[in-house]
Structure formats: structure tokens, C-alpha cells
């Protein structure tokens, strides 16, 4: 079986932010900040570079375009491939957490 490759943190949070609904750039930034409880603050350049890569890998797709006050706004959604990738990453993280928790439980108590 091929070894599961760890997902980069911004990628993980961007995919997670798109699980419930399609979102545009600023919507993703806000959702990532909320879901990560402020731990991850995406820069716009980083976000769109990740979206381009995820789009090329088939994990996200363009949902629809809007024009707001004359400005271009594009909404992105998760593809089936994106859902599968996020599930695989979640399972990998769960396994890691389980293993670490088991190890910590066996640690002798210190005085």
C-alpha cells in the first residue's frame, strides 16, 4: 500500500472550510480562522496558490462566479476527490493521535 503523504496545514484547513458549502477567497480565510480557533491565519497569496494547486490536483473545483460592486468573486467547492483526500488525511491524523495517546497513557507517573 502506498504510504499516505501528510497534507500541509493550509491545505487541510482549506479543504475543511469547503466541506459544508462553496466559499470564495475571503470566505475561506474567515472560515479557516474560525475552525482553527484563530491558529491559522491564511495570507491571500498563500490561499490562492493552494487553491490553484488543489484545482490542478482535482481536489477543488470552481462552483460559480459573481460580480460584487464591480469586483470579481469566485466560489470554490470540494470535489469527490477532495472529500476522499480529506477523509484519508483525517484517518491518518486520527491514527497518529491514537498512537500518541496510547503511548502517553503508558508513561510512568513522575513524582
Amino acid at each position: 500500500m502506498a504510504k499516505a503523504k501528510a497534507m500541509r496545514e493550509p491545505t487541510f484547513w482549506i479543504l475543511t472550510a469547503l466541506v459544508k458549502q462553496a466559499r470564495h477567497g475571503y470566505g475561506i480565510i474567515q472560515e479557516v480562522a474560525a475552525l482553527s480557533e484563530g491558529q491559522v491565519e491564511l495570507q491571500a497569496g498563500t490561499l490562492y496558490a493552494a487553491l490553484d494547486r488543489l484545482h490542478a490536483e482535482g481536489l477543488v473545483a470552481v462552483d460559480h462566479d459573481e460580480k460584487v460592486d464591480g469586483r470579481d468573486r469566485r466560489y470554490y467547492c470540494l470535489t469527490e476527490g477532495g472529500v476522499a483526500a480529506l477523509q484519508a488525511e483525517t484517518a491518518r491524523l486520527e491514527r497518529n493521535v491514537r498512537t500518541a495517546s496510547t503511548q502517553l497513557a503508558t508513561r510512568p507517573a513522575t513524582a
Binding site: 470564495h24 477567497g25 475571503y26 480565510i29 491571500a44 490562492y48 470579481d72
Partner: peptide, 14 residues
Amino acid sequence: GRRRGELLDTFAEA
């Protein structure tokens, strides 16, 4: 391309 517009929209909204 439209990426420039998307970025400007993101900064304007923020």
C-alpha cells in the same frame, strides 16, 4: 486574468 480581481476583492472585503 481574473485572479488579480479575486485578490482585490479579497482585500476589499477584509
